[in-house]
Nucleic acid binder design. Structure first.
Lengths: 229, 229
DNA sequence: GTCTATATCTCGATAGAC
DNA sequence: GTCTATCGAGATATAGAC
């Protein structure tokens, strides 16, 4: 927008490659920011540290994102999109066992593949979620309400135990996100440096089985319980 | 120790009242620090903010506790003592249902009564637990190992479903601490300003029932499930 | 667009009057 | 023991050369 008057010959770059560099730099900054915000939250993070992780001068961060708060907002927004995606395994017509197991597997996969996103989110909630009021009170609440109606339907049909679906979601989130947010505790108890693929599969299968039993759904005995069967 | 030479008449205070003041001030500072550390973690907290919450000049904090890290360490130590106490409902000779239900109730009560302690702990884990290495790798690990052996015994005796006790603990911690750490999310979904006593009792009963089913333990139908029956 | 140099502010910590 | 005043370090943010 603002660079329509720029002479791209001066920098030796075409419009497309200039756009590419911008995109690459923004991505690098966002990834570095996610890592730093994940460890120390918004208040504890410093622009100098983010710049160092990104391998760019500190001034570039301000050039691309303005203030620390705006950079944080950008990181959070990206995470929220990811957050709302993976949760769509619960539908009216689904088999409860498959739907709930799929939901747990998706959440565990997320803890495994995007632990930093989970940690940024956790830090934001711990500090009272000042940047997430709208998300929590509108988007998340409505989504939980909609999914809870489906689960209530399953309960009414006698396909699972009677429980409050909203508390079920709180428990599912707690059980699965703990593997990302508090991984250091889990690694210490399990006495491993990092969780292996096999350990992740076993954790996933433990949570899936526990949840299905907790919901009063008998697991099919011949069904593979690991993440990759 | 160091004030044996002080003239207590000059300040108009006896030794006992001077000790009392010291204890009161230290308590006020520790409580204020817990609140601030809970919201923003060690890196994000400022001594000025803690001093403001405590209602004392910033210099007094340094007088009583030295550095910010030492104050943080003092807060953490108090929390760990609390942490290791309430978890002792799991014994060899216990009834598995009673023991596990009691454990969950104790953890939920802790989330309810000391949410700030839980949050400080969560922040510390999120930032990689630099102050808790010994606790996690020695004390917590050994405790989990001991309790896991008891639970493994119950499983071998056919008194509950076969599962990995360590992952059971991870899930229990996640399920119960989420009610303290991520309370803002729970309040948003439930559309309440604060969780009432009744809401806490219901949450506790939901978690207890879910856990007992998840462990393959039939709940006695005539047993009250609320926190206060 | 990029990066150096720097302005401005706030932090942790302390000296010193009381 | 308490608190004001302040120092040096490090923070956010920007000006301006390139």
């Amino acid at each position: 927008m603002g660079d329509l008057m720029n002479n791209s010959a001066a920098s030796g770059l075409t419009d497309t490659s200039r756009g590419r560099i911008r995109r690459e730099n923004e991505t690098r900054i966002l990834e570095a920011a996610e890592r730093v915000f994940a460890d120390t939250g918004l208040a504890g993070a410093t622009m100098a540290q983010i710049a160092q992780v990104a391998g760019l001068p500190k001034a570039n961060l301000h050039y691309y994102f303005g203030t620390k708060e705006q950079l944080y907002q950008a990181v959070l927004t990206g995470i929220l999109e990811l957050w709302l995606d993976a949760t769509d395994t619960i539908h009216q017509e689904s088999d409860p066992a498959e739907a709930l197991a799929g939901y747990v597997r998706a959440k565990m996969l997320h803890s495994r593949q995007r632990p930093l996103a989970s940690k940024v989110f956790a830090n934001e909630l711990l500090s009272g979620a000042p940047f997430l009021t709208h998300y929590l009170e509108i988007e998340l609440r409505q989504r939980v309400e909609a999914k809870s109606r489906i689960i209530a339907g399953w309960i009414a049909d006698g396909r699972m135990t009677s429980l409050d679906p909203r508390h079920l979601f709180f428990m599912l989130w707690g059980m699965t996100q703990t593997y990302a947010d508090f991984a250091v505790q889990i690694r210490a108890v399990l006495e491993v440096e990092t969780l292996s693929d096999a350990a992740w599969d076993e954790a996933t299968s433990e949570v899936v089985d526990f949840v299905l039993r907790g919901c009063g759904i008998r697991t099919a005995p011949n069904q593979p319980s690991g993440l990759v069967s």
